[in-house]
Amino acid sequence: MTGKRGWIPENLDPARPSPARIYDYALGGGHNLASDRAIFDELVRIQPNARQIAWSNRAFMRRAVLFMIETGIRQFLDLGSGIPTVGNVHEIAQKAAPGSRVVYVDVEEVALAHSQLLLENEPDAAIVDADITYPDNVLKAPETLRLLDFSQPVGVLAVAVGHYIPADVDIHAAFEAYREAVPDGSALAISHFTADFEQVRAQEILETVQASAYNPACLRSRPEILALFGDFELVEPGLVPASGWRPDTTPPQSAVPEDDGIWAGVAIKKGTTA
């Protein structure tokens, strides 16, 4: 890997789009190829506010991390992190609370390659090469054990990743394992694409991405996404459209939260009493 293209693995097929790079392009990042841009342009044709959907999701992630920081959390597990592009977790967390530690997890080759380069000189952040549907491989990875202390609260982030877990995979068992691994006071943030909102042509978007990339995908309903939180206690305002989760600015009067096409929420693990 050399020069400006050093973030691209040598064995990469540049004609094969990557969901991680498509998202990077949607956010205005610089780690994407012509094949990715072409797919995103097609998504914009299908859904003109596609870029706003991406930004609404990213803004939710930022607010969720800052909320976790406010609760005292100083370590984060970012599942399906993709390319740590514009406004990544360790930058947000470490700016708000210096010394915060972050473990990114992904299995996509480009996301891994770029993350490894970006984090070379970051002692408090690392990338784990693992499929998040195999929690043991994530939780027992050397970098996870080096950076995260599971006797202290952990902020688990599953932002825009659940819809890349196919329907035939037991997503509930995977999320249960992560919930059980963290102690009381930990938090879980989830955002997930859905077909619940008629303003968003979710199925057509899904089929376009699936036809162009190797990732299978699965739209889930609000009750299905809600179940991923298990017995964690949702904080206000609950599971809502991404832009409606604790917005830090007043949305314009013309804004329609359902245009996000994404359910988002944060929940806390509470202790039980005898």
Rank of each mutant, 00 (worst) to 15 (best):
A59K: 02
L66M: 04
E42P: 00
L12N: 13
I225W: 05
V44H: 08
V161Y: 07
Q253A: 15
S56Y: 08
Q152R: 15
I132T: 09
L148C: 06
Q203I: 12
R63C: 07
L43G: 01
L66K: 06
T144V: 12
T250I: 14
A213F: 03
T144N: 11
D259E: 11
L112A: 06
S115E: 03
N121M: 04
L33M: 14
F193I: 05
F76C: 06
A158C: 06
A264C: 07
T85K: 09
A64P: 10
P251G: 01
A113Y: 07
L239I: 04
Q203G: 12
Y134A: 14
S35Q: 07
A195W: 00
N121K: 14
G230Q: 08
E176G: 02
G261D: 04
D36F: 03
L27S: 04
H31W: 13
G28C: 12
L188D: 00
V65N: 00
N49T: 12
Y178Q: 05
T2M: 10
L27C: 00
H163R: 09
E236C: 01
H192C: 15
A274D: 11
F67M: 08
L188M: 10
A255E: 13
P9V: 11
S100C: 13
G6K: 14
E70H: 12
V266E: 00
A93T: 01
V102K: 04
P153Y: 02
G72L: 01
F193T: 06
A111C: 12
L145T: 14
E204Y: 00
D149L: 05
A125F: 01
V107N: 15
N57M: 00
L226Q: 14
N11C: 04
V156R: 02
L206E: 11
P135Y: 07
G99F: 04
A160S: 14
I53W: 00
L139N: 05
A267N: 01
P153K: 03
T250V: 15
V103Q: 05
A213N: 05
P183R: 07
Q203S: 14
L118C: 04
I92E: 05
